[in-house]
């Protein structure tokens, strides 16, 4: 399965520039940290500043390397399934605490089984219920981990 493609050299340039920006970020905020208390002894900002410079230089070198690349191959950035996996993961983690374990994991698993695994409703729903219930019991009862209850958890277990 193939998704969006981009030329290899363009990706290298973009990645290098991103890295340079990360280096610049640490350099900028590192310079704003308090100076060393005594001369000759590095302070809280010294290491981040030095590392920020190294990262920025490496990033620029990678970007320049990308520009000079003769290789015409292209890179697969990913397709529909990656997008689905990523979006559902972001939603599940964002809703994990507010909506509670039961609701977020059950919805996440049902969606995952259907959209990623191509399962039917009839199979996905019971499987999702079974897995999330089983994990809930394993982690809270056996391992003593505190998982967020949320609405459904409060009704069922409290």
């Amino acid at each position: 399965m193939t998704g969006a493609r981009v030329a290899q050299w363009k990706a290298e340039v973009a990645g290098g520039l991103l890295l340079a920006a990360i280096g610049g970020f640490f350099l900028y905020f590192g310079l704003r940290l308090p100076p060393p208390d005594e001369p000759g002894v590095p302070g809280p900002g010294s290491a981040p500043i030095a590392l920020g410079v190294i990262i920025a230089l490496c990033g620029l070198a990678v970007a320049i390397g990308g520009l000079r690349k003769a290789d015409r191959s292209s890179l697969d950035l990913g397709g529909r399934k990656q997008a689905i996996a990523l979006i559902s993961l972001v939603l599940a983690t964002a809703l994990f605490e507010p909506a509670g374990f039961m609701l977020s994991t059950f919805t996440f698993l049902t969606a995952g089984f259907i959209l990623l695994g191509g399962a039917s409703w009839q199979r996905a729903v019971p499987a999702a219920a079974l897995v999330s219930g089983g994990l809930w019991l394993t982690f809270t009862k056996l391992l003593g981990v505190g998982l967020p209850y949320g609405l459904i958890g409060e009704i069922l277990f409290r």
Partner: peptide
């Protein structure tokens, strides 16, 4: 008494 709650953010 018991209560059911749905809190959006912890604070």
């Amino acid at each position: 008494s018991w209560e059911v709650r749905l809190s959006v953010a912890r604070h």
